[in-house]
């Protein structure tokens, strides 16, 4: 991440940081939505971008984080709770990853989707039969601004960790795996181990986002916390922006969060249909994401400059 991309991330984060000072409550809510999606989509792309494994488990990790906050939020000090959520998410990713990362493409997609639904059903069963209630009320003493700044810190952390991974041997390993898994193995790369590690890192961020977001809903039930739309939104935003680059999802998150906000407010009943249409339009029109389009257009635009300056 250098030059233009770095400036882009810094500018976007800088603009977001001004919202609590300059904006209204509505603006703050929007900014929280953007940051939450930014964490989820960037964390999703952290794993799915280089490995090209399409995960639909975002909702599962997010939901587990939310339920950790709902169930333990009053019993544990907040930083401890976040640590617990992080460990829960990463541990679950390791278990899930061990059983699924040997699967190839399409099976992985289906498995992760099925997993999210399974966890949702299990939590529902638990709540009905053990807790004897369908939902929970969350009374945690956190302000909207508190949530905003936690998400802000988390988003900054996603970028920092993603940047560090990109420069590390793990980052190279994942790019090699993404290009050719067999070659990766013959280069001595423990492919499953590398994927597993990254899946856990990605999941930990998603779980943390869920925990931080939980107090926003005073009422939480499994269909909110494990809503499959969460998974599809993260995926669609990352794809629109470009999942192959750390800064790519950002380009999809901002316009789509705003668009979904408008759609959700004006056409609440047709939201799923519209989401599907947007999805199709994106895959059709910008298959490489905005970032890919941008990187392609940039050299074209400056073709007259000497080769070195382009790179």
């Amino acid at each position: 991440m250098k030059g233009v991309p770095l400036a882009l991330v810094v500018a976007a984060m800088g603009a977001l940081a001004l919202v609590p000072f300059l904006g209204t409550g509505y603006h703050l809510a929007l900014a929280i939505g953007i940051l939450n999606n930014l964490v989820l989509a960037t964390a999703w792309a952290l794993f799915s971008g280089p490995t090209r494994y399409v995960s639909l488990a975002t909702a599962a990790f997010f939901g587990i984080g939310s339920y950790a906050a709902a169930g333990l939020g009053e019993a544990l000090p907040w930083p401890v709770l976040l640590a617990v959520a992080l460990v829960l998410g990463a541990a679950m990713a390791l278990v899930v990853g061990l059983s699924t990362l040997r699967l190839s493409g399409i099976y992985f997609v289906i498995f992760t989707f099925g997993l999210s639904e399974l966890i949702r059903q299990l939590v529902t069963w638990w709540e009905v039969n053990v807790s004897r209630s369908v939902g929970r009320y969350i009374f945690l003493d956190v302000t909207q601004e508190g949530i905003f700044w936690q998400l802000f810190g988390l988003a900054a952390l996603v970028f920092l960790v993603g940047w560090l991974i990109g420069r590390s041997r793990l980052g190279l390993a994942l790019r090699v795996v993404g290009d050719d898994e067999l070659v990766a193995r013959h280069c001595g790369i423990n492919v499953t181990g590398a994927k597993l590690l990254l899946f856990a890192v990605s999941a930990a961020f998603m779980t943390l986002a869920g925990a931080i977001m939980a107090p926003r809903w005073t009422y939480l039930d499994p269909s909110i916390a494990f809503n499959p739309v969460i998974s599809f939104q993260a995926l669609i935003m990352a794809l629109l922006g470009g999942a192959g680059r750390l800064w790519g999802p950002l380009l999809g998150v901002v316009p789509l969060t705003l668009l979904f906000e408008v759609l959700g407010a004006n056409f609440p009943n047709a939201f799923s249909i519209l989401l599907g249409l947007v999805f199709m339009a994106i895959v059709y029109a910008v298959p490489n994401g905005i970032a890919g389009w941008f990187e392609g257009a940039w050299p074209r635009a400056v073709r007259l400059l000497p080769q070195k300056a382009v790179r």
């Binding site: 190279l172 050719d180 067999l182 013959h186 280069c187 001595g188």
Partner: peptide
């Protein structure tokens, strides 16, 4: 044990240097 492939397999999205680095970075 290192190998090449009958139908050549480079890492297409990586540049030549990174292709070689892939062989250096994960050996024993």
């Amino acid at each position: 044990v290192a190998r090449t492939f009958q139908l050549v397999r480079v890492l297409p999205s990586l540049d030549a240097r990174e292709n070689v680095l892939a062989g250096l970075a994960f050996r024993a």
